[in-house]
Design a protein around this nucleic acid. Structure first.
Length: 347
DNA sequence: TATCCGTGGGA
DNA sequence: TTCCCAAGGAT
């Protein structure tokens, strides 16, 4: 959870997670649907699926270990790196913090501290090998747990991105960036790229029974494995109503009447900006088929909270509930425990 | 190696 | 409002 995510943000998720999945066996046995529901809103959703895959791998390894003398947790770098979603830094964090073993880490805080310490002239991403060597060479092998924690805390509380407290820094005498006069010039940043911008037409399709149509995205790519309201990119010169009708036809093989606008949601991802133009639609004909998704379902609007949606879609759900006069909000539903109900394909 | 992968807190 | 960037990993 802490990969690219602040402790303060991850903490409430972690507390709910540990209450629902308190041990390796619980995570390994859980439904992926419920795992994603617990992760809903945290972002980088492949982390959740890979974490569960990793739990299942560790459990399988433990069952093949006939001796059963040791716990399932690896004590080697290779053992952790064999698990999906665990890279060198996370492996080093686990080994040093859980077992006090001498393995280095390299998170955002450490990169900044080291970049300033040596006044590294290039962005850390272009010097990863050197940064790893530096982190390893500094590590105190006698107490790696305390050293790594201290190094991260130094970056988080003293050697901060803006307005660092160099007067309180124990490494001030050794810091090349401080000697150069401007510590905030490091780490050197990559030239920011312009974010692509796209308009997405989204259809909230209702049938005669008052049910709404949702689909589960493919596991690969953006927001993999999460549910959404169907839609797609607006093409040049295309009216948004035409976009929505076309996407429903191409991706679900249905015909729908595109009605009034429900809401417009602007959302910035780390690498693109999107504007969702959301319209209420009326299903006309065709059994929905998951042509570009894992599965498709008709669900009652008050049931939407049982499905993991990305953040931008949570605003659409809230608008729909408000339009329909429902009191339950997506946020309320997201805070609830995983729903035991099985999720089945519509077709 | 460069790019993709989310979200939200804080300045 | 806009921008930065966070206990990184996979491809």
């Amino acid at each position: 959870m802490l990969q690219q995510t602040r402790l303060q943000v991850a903490l409430p998720y972690w507390q709910r997670w540990m209450a629902a999945l308190p041990a390796l066996e619980a995570l390994a046995a859980a439904r992926e649907h419920d795992v994603l529901l617990l992760w809903q809103g945290l972002g980088y959703y492949s982390r959740a699926r890979r974490l569960q895959q990793g739990a299942r791998q560790l459990q399988a390894l433990a069952e093949h270990n006939e001796a059963r003398t040791a716990d399932p947790w690896p004590r080697t770098l290779e053992g952790w790196l064999a698990l999906p979603g665990i890279g060198r830094s996370t492996a080093g964090s686990i080994l040093s913090s859980a077992f006090d073993l001498p393995f280095a880490i390299l998170d955002g805080n450490v990169k900044r501290v080291l970049a300033r310490l040596v006044a590294s002239p290039r962005p850390p991403a272009r010097e990863l090998k050197g940064f790893w060597q530096l982190s390893e060479s500094l590590l105190d092998p006698r107490r790696p747990r305390e050293f790594n924690q201290a190094l991260m805390d130094l970056g988080a509380t003293v050697c901060t991105p803006r307005n660092p407290s160099c007067g309180a820094c124990p490494w001030q005498r050794h810091c090349a960036a401080y000697a150069a006069g401007d510590p905030t010039a490091f780490p050197v940043k990559e030239a920011p790229r312009e974010l692509p911008y796209q308009v997405i037409g989204v259809g909230v399709v209702l049938n005669g029974a008052g049910e709404v149509l949702i689909d589960q995205r493919l596991n690969e790519g953006l927001l993999g494995g999460l549910w959404e309201f169907p839609g797609g990119k607006q093409e040049p010169g295309e009216a948004i109503e035409a976009t929505i009708a076309r996407e429903l036809r191409e991706e679900l093989a249905i015909e729908a009447g595109v009605g009034e606008q429900l809401i417009v949601v602007d959302h910035a991802y780390s690498h693109k900006r999107l504007r969702f133009m959301v319209h209420l639609c009326t299903w006309l004909s065709g059994e929905p088929r998951p042509l570009a998704a894992q599965q498709v379902r008709w669900v009652r609007p008050e049931q939407l909270g049982d499905f993991p949606f990305p953040a931008a879609n949570a605003r659409i759900i809230a608008a729909l509930h408000e339009r329909l006069g429902l009191e339950a909000s997506a946020a309320d539903a997201a805070a609830a425990l995983p729903h035991p109900e099985e999720s089945r394909p519509a077709a």
